[in-house]
Computed example of a mutant assay.
Amino acid sequence: MKSKQEVREYVWNAIKPYSTFPPPYGRIPNFVGADKACEKLRELEEYRKAKVVFSAPDSPLKRAREIVLEDGKKLLVVKPKMTGFLLVENGKAGTIKEMLRYGREVDLNELKIHVDIFLQGCVAVDRKGNRIGKGSGFGDREYRILREKGLIDDETLYVVVAHPIQIFDDLSHLMDEHDVKVDVILTPKEIIRTENYFKRFR
């Protein structure tokens, strides 16, 4: 494939039989089995040790946000279209409505926490750790902002949730210098540690 958009179009079409609400096109696809993929979080030693998890508001991450709060951890979330950040310590945050209801708006300059797990959805990802989003650039911008504010560092684990159809062997030729690499891919049946993980942590 010759462009990120070509990969997106391929995935949005291929994942249709496995997709759930909302429809996948133009979005981070939600899929049958996303809940099971999110449950894989609990199998990660890094997650079990984590105190703070950041999650994008993507639909396939709904169960992951619930799990974080069920496990008594702090959840940092970004509001839709990056209009602010919320810290959720109690209540629910599976849906955007719940995030807005139970989350407390925070100023990142004043927030004294360390994000242990950075959690995103994807349109496509490869085994080297290259991730393609829906094209808005929000995922990389969220990562960079948290990094610039000192909430993310070299110890933060970058995790994505994906359906097997979204996973490729190598998308390196499509990547830009600013693209942030993924460490771990969670699918309904697998935990995949990418090449980037082994470069960073081993």
Rank of each mutant, 00 (worst) to 15 (best):
M1T: 10
S3C: 10
R8C: 07
Y10R: 15
N13S: 05
I15M: 06
T20W: 09
T20R: 13
T20L: 03
F21M: 12
P23Q: 12
P23I: 15
R27P: 01
R27K: 15
F31I: 01
V32S: 13
V32T: 14
G33E: 02
D35A: 13
K36A: 13
E39I: 11
L41Y: 14
E45V: 02
K49S: 13
K49M: 06
K49W: 08
A50Q: 06
P57H: 10
R65W: 09
I67M: 03
K79A: 06
K79F: 06
K81M: 10
M82D: 11
G84P: 09
V88F: 08
E89F: 05
E89I: 12
K92G: 00
T95H: 12
K97D: 08
L100S: 10
L100C: 01
R101D: 01
R104E: 14
N109A: 04
E110K: 06
K112H: 03
V115M: 00
I117T: 07
L119C: 09
L119A: 06
D126T: 10
S136P: 02
S136Y: 11
G137V: 12
G139S: 15
I152N: 01
E155K: 15
E155F: 12
T156K: 00
Y158T: 11
A162Q: 02
D169R: 08
H173Y: 12
L174A: 09
H178T: 08
D179L: 10
V182P: 10
V184W: 09
I185V: 10
I185N: 07
P188T: 01
K189S: 13
T194S: 06
E195A: 06
F198Q: 09
R200N: 08
